[in-house]
Design a protein around this nucleic acid. Sequence first.
DNA 1: GACCCGTGTGAGAATGGTTCTCATGACCAG
DNA 2: CTGGTCATGAGAACCATTCTCACACGGGTC
Lengths: 136, 136
Amino acid sequence: MSAPEVPVRRQTRQRTAVLTLLDQLDGFRTAQDLHALLRERGDAVGLATVYRALQALVDDGLVDVLRGEDGEAAYRRCSPVHHHHLVCRSCGLTVEVADPPVERWAARVAAEHGFADVQHQLEVFGTCGRCTPAQR
Amino acid sequence: MSAPEVPVRRQTRQRTAVLTLLDQLDGFRTAQDLHALLRERGDAVGLATVYRALQALVDDGLVDVLRGEDGEAAYRRCSPVHHHHLVCRSCGLTVEVADPPVERWAARVAAEHGFADVQHQLEVFGTCGRCTPAQR
DNA sequence: GACCCGTGTGAGAATGGTTCTCATGACCAG
DNA sequence: CTGGTCATGAGAACCATTCTCACACGGGTC
Ligand SMILES: [Mn+2]
Ligand SMILES: [Mn+2]
Ligand SMILES: [Zn+2]
Ligand SMILES: [Zn+2]
């Protein structure tokens, strides 16, 4: 019934800077972090614009969002296919992982309890090798 | 090395009211919601106190926290053993579920990538039967 | 290349959930 | 019962995120 609603995205220096930066990072970063990094690097971008650019990238499926313990959102350039994350609590380093079995499990469990329109969320947190202090 | 650090919890009208209310609810509720419910019911409790009581319950393992899309924290009286949640996006109704296979999977995947001190988080969201509009 | 118009930008204000402050009140061990 | 310690609550403070709105600019068009 409604139009495809395809918002035309203009290519601006700011949006390019945000995506370029994300492509060079390997972990989840907060909008505030990204804003600070852009400023250090020289391509200054307004904070509000960083938020808007990130939201657009999320809508386009190019970036994933994750909420930290404190509720602050963190963003990462991710592959467009469904996957989960193995995240370092210390440095944010992230590895994309897949778990086919859990996909079916989630669907089955939801059906058994009469739930529809199901989605799931699975993340693994830990400390990566580089951040683990040399063990005795 | 450090003392057991066992903070003595006093039993107050406010803390009792919060836990009693949570025991009567079956789904995740925000602190603001709980505060409003307590006010309606008559046992008025300060908002700051609601937050403090909930945090204490979380620390004691009696309550689970979940962050919504908007980052707002939601609380629920839960069993003290490890489990996951099947949550209704509409009314908050929640069912506790377990998935033994995913436990081993998470540990294995983390180990394969050199991650230590691993934890995981798995939640399933959907629309419960009561909230699903009668299908045609 | 010049024009136009709708979209994007940014500084600052506003929002809103959560935490902090601190004077006052209430558990509860002794 | 009493004292000291912990808890409470009203309001201020905090802080990530969103909104406002005047201005800049991307990118079709001719
Ligand atoms: Mn999955
Ligand atoms: Mn588990
Ligand atoms: Zn790390
Ligand atoms: Zn429901």
